[in-house]
């Protein structure tokens, strides 16, 4: 059996009456980081929504572990952790309470020790752990949401702009985290505007423009994608 985990096969998606994705094809293998780049409104988030079963394909298929997502949405969601765009958690709860609650919805029980460890991994400062999240900065909220996604310990991670709001140090730490997760076998699909970061961590990058794939890049033997090339391609083809 092939080790393709995520696959778009001639995927087209509509939102209302307007086509948002048209005839997309890509494959992501187990343990790979796949970065989706594109201008605002290109259809990146829509791609993730489709793979989560939130939007039905108009034609073609969104495939996870060899099965069309829409044939069994529930089983897909238990295998995928998803970091929504501009992720927010409850302001009236602390980071720990938030994580406990959302994990319990996913049917997962973690000790507060494990939760604290995960928050440390995304380097959320200790003092904040037991503060209500309404007092968090944007980056602190983002870190907590990332910790939540990590704690799900799913084989697949869908991350929508995970580094938005993070400071440069935190971005570096995050990139390292992604690399080590992938090395451990987690498959990661990541939407980002950070071309440099994507080139650091991704095994594969796809450029999206108005719902169509307009370019794709693969890592060389050194495991890197050339930032200049992607930048140029983005400016030339993807900028709407």
């Amino acid at each position: 059996m092939s080790n393709i985990v995520v696959e778009a096969r001639n995927l087209s998606v509509m939102r209302g009456q307007t086509p948002v994705l048209s005839d997309i094809n890509f494959e992501v293998r187990k343990g790979e980081v796949f970065a989706l780049l594109g201008g605002n409104g290109a259809g990146k988030s829509t791609t993730l929504h489709t793979f989560l079963g939130l939007l039905p394909p108009q034609s073609g298929e969104a495939i996870l572990f060899g099965k069309a997502v829409h044939s069994d949405v529930a089983s897909v969601r238990s295998k995928v952790a998803y970091l929504p765009e501009a992720a927010t958690l409850y302001g009236h709860l602390t980071a720990i309470e938030n994580i406990e609650y959302f994990l319990s919805l996913a049917g997962i029980k973690k000790s507060s020790n494990e939760i604290v460890q995960a928050l440390d991994r995304v380097s959320l400062q200790k003092e904040a752990h037991n503060q209500n999240m309404e007092r968090y900065s944007k980056g602190m909220r983002q870190k907590t949401a990332i910790a939540l996604a990590l704690l799900r310990e799913t084989p697949v991670l869908f991350l929508d702009e995970p580094t938005s709001g993070l400071d440069p140090v935190a971005i570096d730490e995050f990139n390292q985290l992604i690399t080590s997760l992938a090395a451990a076998g987690t498959t990661i699909v990541m939407v980002t505007h950070d071309v440099y970061g994507a080139c650091q961590v991704a095994h594969r990058i796809a450029l999206l423009r108005r719902g169509a794939l307009v370019g794709s890049f693969e890592a060389d033997e050194g495991g890197k994608i050339d930032t200049e090339t992607v930048h140029a391609a983005f400016a030339e083809r993807a900028a709407s």
């Binding site: 989560l52 969601r77 929504p84 501009a86 927010t88 409850y90 302001g91």
Partner: peptide, 13 residues
């Protein structure tokens, strides 16, 4: 409004 709805969906709700 707070976009926590997405977070609920993300947990499989």
């Amino acid at each position: 409004e707070a976009r926590t709805f997405d977070q609920l969906i993300a947990q499989g709700m």
